[in-house]
Design a protein around this nucleic acid. Structure first.
Length: 515
RNA sequence: GCUCCCUUCGUCUAUCGGUUAGGACGCGAGAUUUUCAUUCUUGAAAGAGGGGUUCGACUCCCCUAGGGAGCGCCA
């Protein structure tokens, strides 16, 4: 394992920000951007600020904002200070626009929306670049029509080029002739995104802007605003996008867009972070990296330029690693935290590709439907588990966690705890419990009644002895037991199941199918 | 259409001009095993295509092809 040089203490403290718009959930791509920002700041003693880009009043609402904050908290990415509302700073943005006007770096444009639209259509039809050159850039404002409220446009340079110096993309130059005079103040006097971003980033003292490449052309335009305002341009790192497994944009069809879905599926925050950081960034051959290592190693200069595809198989593998490494107490706590977020009926209603394996939370919902149909949601399941006793869940954890990739699978494996007696059998276990198997169960029940010590090793020894005496293979004895105890042909080791269930419950379940 | 970016196993990636092109996931085979897993061993699997530059190119340059992003009084 090679160790990169430790980042030098910068003379000016690093300030980064994550600036999502409130769309109703924290997008998985946004989550990675937030993670990159967080790692960069926290690894270098800098600040990680949060700003909500809520200037679009129609889309903005409190629920959408808290969904994003919840997502960040769940991912364990803490930010400094209060989240800044961009909308609340509109006066300051207007002030900057006035400043631009006063400096001669902006002008009033009296073109109507219809006029602009028409020009764009014409350009498109003629195969010309769809940029709009306002005639009011050079026209005398005294000629302005009285009935039109003007917008304010940036007076961007027409010649030369605008260069974006980027830690990921390198130097990217845009010919100024391709960048039109963007509107910075709408005709209703409200600031537009590009102006607001520049003013906010400047006022918040942001030194490094780490965001998606989809903003690269915005950066060229924003650079012109910085220049018009006479402000220093911050450093940039435009990170590549994350695509779905088919290479197209990540969509609902791919399984999950918001981090809340990943919580529901039972991924551990640390596993998701480890997975996300490896999309577009690496540190040699290292795959599993602790947060401490990431803080030490992560650097924006090592981020790749190409987009990557989201691979659930790899996420599952990482999550499995972290589950196995996690203490039982913490796992139980995380399961209990997760359960109230699950609504089984809703999960079962999720459409998905029938060829693909269902999401772990959907699989759990389906399993509950057959095993314990009376449990309708995660909160009920949680209550049921608490009634039975979390000590039983704890006792099952060591056996469960080495066969689970997600918390949802952990719960699926633990469902035998809440099953009603007699257990609801699935098709395979129904078939397995034939006359011979039921006779075996009767014989076992008789033995178990008198067993001195009810523990996994003692039970295993006794069952092995029974198999030996009757000349049966262990599987011939263990499988009927498993079916009677769990209703499934797949479960944690039967002896663990017997042990965790306890003598009375186990015997009742066995007798229910014995004959 | 215009501008910009990208292209190493199926996927995520390593390689700072000289390697039998490495690792991880997934997949195949085997071992362990009461089921399923875990664990261990092992196998297959890649430089988009074409030109240059160079003693030597995955690495530098050009072209082509494919992919992506942006082109709003959205953010």
């Amino acid at each position: 394992m090679t160790v990169a040089s430790t980042p030098r203490a910068p003379s000016t403290p690093i300030v980064v920000r994550f600036a999502p718009s409130p769309t109703g959930y924290l997008h998985i791509g946004g989550a990675r951007t937030a993670l990159f920002n967080w790692l960069y700041a926290r690894g270098r003693g800098g600040q990680f600020l949060l700003r909500i880009e809520d200037t679009d009043r129609e889309r903005n609402n409190d629920a959408a904002v808290s969904a994003i904050l919840d997502g960040l908290r769940w991912l364990e990415l803490d930010w400094d200070g209060e989240a800044v509302s961009q909308f609340a700073r509109a006066d300051r943005h207007r002030e900057a626009a006035q400043d631009l006007l006063a400096r001669g770096a902006a002008y009033h444009c009296y073109c109507s929306s219809a006029e602009i639209e028409a020009a764009r259509e014409a350009a498109k039809a003629a195969g010309r670049p769809q940029i709009f050159l306002s005639p009011w850039r050079d026209r005398d404002p005294s000629e302005a029509p009285a009935d039109i409220k003007p917008t304010v446009r940036l007076k961007a340079p027409r010649d030369g080029e605008t260069k974006v110096v980027d830690h990921v993309q390198g130097d990217v130059t845009f010919p100024n002739k391709d960048l039109d005079d963007l509107i910075i103040l709408r005709s209703d006097g409200n600031p537009t995104y590009n102006l607001a971003v520049v003013v906010d980033d400047h006022d918040m003292g942001v030194t490094h802007i780490i965001r998606g490449v989809d903003h690269l052309t915005n950066t060229a335009r924003q650079t012109q605003i910085y220049q018009g305002l006479g402000w220093a341009v911050p450093e940039f790192a435009h990170v590549p996008l994350i695509h779905g497994a088919d290479g197209a944009k990540l969509s609902k069809r791919h399984g999950a867009q918001g981090v809340e879905d990943y919580r529901s599926m039972g991924y551990l925050p640390i596993a998701l972070r480890n997975y996300l950081v490896r999309l577009g960034w690496s540190h040699g051959d290292d795959e599993i990296m602790s947060t401490e290592q990431l803080l030490q190693w992560f650097d924006i200069d090592a981020i790749n330029k190409s987009a990557s595809r989201f691979d659930f198989k790899k996420l599952d593998d990482l999550n499995g690693h972290y589950i196995r490494a996690c203490g039982d107490t913490e796992l139980v706590a995380r399961i209990m935290d997760m359960l109230p977020h699950l609504n089984f009926a809703e999960l079962r209603a999720i459409e998905h590709d029938p060829k693909a394996p269902p999401r772990a939370d959907v699989a759990l919902a389906n399993d509950i439907a057959t095993l314990s149909p009376s449990i309708a949601d995660g909160a009920t399941l949680k209550a049921r588990l608490e009634t039975i006793g979390t000590d039983k869940l704890m006792a099952a954890m060591p056996a469960l966690k080495e066969r689970s990739k997600t918390l949802a699978e952990l719960v699926t494996g633990a469902l035998f705890l809440v099953a009603e007696t007699p257990v609801h059998l699935d098709d395979k276990s129904t078939k397995l419990l034939d006359a011979q198997a039921r006779a075996t169960l009767a014989a076992l029940a008789a033995r178990f009644e008198h067993i001195a010590e009810w523990s996994a090793p003692a039970l295993e020894a006794d069952v092995r002895l029974f198999a030996e005496e009757t000349g049966a293979k262990l599987g011939k004895v263990a499988q009927p037991l498993r079916a009677a105890l769990t209703g499934r042909t797949v479960s944690p080791p039967v002896f663990t199941v017997l042990d965790v269930l306890g003598r009375d419950e186990a015997l009742a379940r066995i007798r229910a199918f014995a004959s």
